[in-house]
């Protein structure tokens, strides 16, 4: 199984542990990643909040490169994935728009490749059975709240690979690793994402609600598949605790970190030291790491 790999900007900066463990997990499961040469930023929220054509053209330049490689795209970042899927969706049956986009990017974009999130590839294409067979160190006794946020599963007309209100892919993967998952209310609530810098108060409120719900459901930790979700839930947790005079101490993992751990990889190679809420104490207490 081979994909055109689109890391996206966050995986080269705030989410390097997601990038490293993505490569580890894919290598273990035989998913070959061919990085799109000289890829550019997808434009994220800022592009589609500013100009519709720009929001299609930026991902289209990357998609056109993937077309030349003849490979479907896999993106670990939920936002990058969503922007690519959106571009494919909007241009699919619209030749005029596809032509306009091609002119803007100075290359022919035909719309022949698909874009998938890494979670979809690992949970649906590879599947929990294959994952389970690779587990060397089951995550016994670890109770996680699987958090999808907004962009992985919404809007369903664009994404459509898991339920938009109650997705289960990540739960199936976590169960395959030997972890326990909790049923909870906020798995697809939004963390506020890019408002984190401009309206930190809103992100603190939304993050507080999510952390509160995870804690109430009895989770030891949250597991996610998006660099913005991780940055907000982990990086802003201290601020939330201070603002709302409460204590959570909930580590926030990337699902690929927990997969790597269960596959028997050395814990010190998984980027735990780069978390704001250090997860190592929890992992020690469960005798997982």
């Amino acid at each position: 199984m081979k994909y055109a790999y689109y890391p996206g900007c966050s995986l080269h900066s705030t989410a390097t542990e997601y990038e490293e463990t993505t490569r580890t997990v894919c290598a273990t499961l035989g998913v070959e990643l061919a990085e799109i040469p000289d890829w550019n930023c997808c434009g994220a929220t800022s592009a589609h909040a500013t100009n519709h054509l720009l929001s299609l053209a930026l991902p289209a330049r990357d998609l056109a490169k993937a077309e030349q490689m003849g490979l479907d795209v896999v993106a670990p970042c939920a936002a990058c994935y969503n922007r690519m899927a959106q571009t494919i969706h909007e241009t699919k049956d619209n030749e005029v728009l596809r032509h306009k986009v091609s002119q803007v990017i100075g290359a022919e974009y035909q719309g022949t490749v698909k874009a998938k999130s890494l979670l979809e590839v690992l949970a649906a294409d590879i599947g929990p059975k294959v994952v389970e067979a690779k587990v060397q160190k089951p995550l016994k006794g670890l109770k996680v709240a699987a958090y999808y946020g907004c962009l992985l599963v919404r809007p369903p007309a664009v994404t459509g690979w898991d339920d938009a209100e109650n997705p289960q892919s990540m739960e199936r993967l976590m169960t395959a690793l030997g972890a326990e998952t909790v049923d909870w209310s906020h798995k697809t609530e939004c963390c506020g994402a890019s408002l984190t810098i401009s309206r930190t108060d809103i992100v603190a409120k939304l993050t507080h609600d999510i952390l509160d719900a995870a804690k109430a459901a009895g989770a030891d930790a949250i597991v996610c598949a998006c660099p913005m979700c991780q940055a907000n839930l982990d990086g802003r947790q201290g601020l939330v605790e201070k603002t709302y005079k409460t204590q959570y101490h909930l580590p926030v993992f990337y699902f690929t970190q927990l997969m790597s751990l269960a596959f028997g990889k050395e814990p010190y190679k998984l980027g735990f030291a780069r978390h704001s809420i250090d997860p190592r104490e929890l992992l020690h207490s469960k005798e997982i790491a």
Binding site: D38, N40, G43, S194
Partner: peptide, 18 residues
């Protein structure tokens, strides 16, 4: 202002620069 700063970085070097 955030959106502007973000897009200026992308327009400058092709990728976001936090």
């Amino acid at each position: 202002a955030f959106h502007r700063a973000f897009l200026n970085a992308v327009a400058g070097g092709g990728r976001a620069y936090e």
